[in-house]
């Protein structure tokens, strides 16, 4: 006859999926506000943007696709809101083939919130294939890879782009994505042209980029939904002013409950495993 430990170790995995699913749904319906403390690597990016003079040009590379929208989307929204709030001139582009429409939607919706004018306050360049070649070519001139913007308007006909030639005319690049494309920005933009770079990456990629923070190759790092929630916390008054929805903060509240469940399941699973290996148990079984 199976004892409780055997039952636990042979538990149908679908019960665990159900438990995780419930732990992710219930806090949405009955929210509990938990405190979010911004970390230094996120504060660095916030302070950098905060201290830039109005009208400075900055590049936002939204290199993410629908698969990671849940993490990168809130990061991109928070960053773009901050840039528009500070009246910076923002160039948005994407090197992810599935990200062109996402980046366009993001740009349009946030520009509408802040009543920004296309071509004067921001420009959307769209998608181009072969990331490393594009990154290298921008170092010489945006016009090599992007003779025209996403809507086929020549860059020279866009007012804010007339004064911008290459990385030298930008205060920094903030890249959102993670994985290979982030490595390419590090190699072909930061290392080759010594441009200031910060990364907003998925949580899976987060740990590998802390090394670049230590080596000062990047000046800030936003990791996953947690990083986005930290940025939203720093922008809190702005969210309240515009009556906006703090999606990452809401998500992190739920995340905490799922983590508690996963930790509990890990502990129970380990206890069951060791109890089954315990000599007394083996004897009883024999």
């Amino acid at each position: 006859m199976m004892n409780i430990w055997d039952k636990l170790l042979n538990l149908d995995r679908r019960f665990i999926y159900l438990a995780v699913f419930l732990a992710a749904i219930i806090p949405f319906l009955f929210p509990v506000g938990l405190e979010i403390n911004p970390t230094q690597e996120v504060i660095s990016i916030y302070n950098f943007i905060e201290e830039l003079p109005e009208g400075t040009a900055i590049l936002l590379a939204a290199d993410y696709d629908p698969q990671t929208e849940a993490e990168n989307g809130p990061q991109a929204r928070a960053l773009l809101r901050h840039m528009f709030k500070r009246n910076l001139k923002v160039i948005i582009m994407t090197l992810s083939q599935d990200g062109a429409a996402l980046a366009e939607m993001l740009t349009k919706s946030i520009a509408e919130e802040y009543e920004k004018e296309y071509g004067v306050d921001y420009t959307y360049l769209g998608y181009k294939p072969y990331p490393s070649i594009i990154i290298l070519s921008i170092g010489q001139d945006f016009r090599i890879s992007y003779p025209a913007d996403f809507y086929d308007t020549k860059l020279n006909d866009i007012p804010m782009m007339r004064e911008i030639k290459n990385y030298n005319d930008l205060a920094a690049i903030i890249q959102i994505g993670g994985g290979n494309v982030s490595n390419m920005w590090l190699t072909y933009a930061q290392e080759r042209y010594k441009v200031k770079l910060a990364l907003a990456v998925t949580a899976v990629s987060g740990p590998q980029y802390y090394a670049f923070l230590q080596s000062k190759q990047i000046f800030g790092l936003i990791g996953g939904l947690k990083g986005a929630a930290e940025y939203e916390t720093l922008l809190e008054s702005e969210y309240d002013r515009l009556h906006l929805h703090k999606k990452a903060i809401q998500g992190m509240n739920v995340q905490n409950f799922v983590h508690i469940l996963i930790i509990a399941l890990t502990i129970i699973g380990n206890i069951a495993f060791f109890m089954k290996r315990h000599p007394k148990h083996m004897k009883t079984k024999g």
């Binding site: 995780v20 992710a24 749904i25 849940a70 989307g73 949580a203 899976v204 947690k226 995340q255 983590h259």
Partner: peptide, 16 residues
């Protein structure tokens, strides 16, 4: 730990 957080974030995104 970060990977777990990433996967849960994707689930949260869909539930949102």
């Amino acid at each position: 730990g970060y990977t777990v957080m990433a996967r849960v974030s994707l689930l949260i995104g869909r539930i949102q």
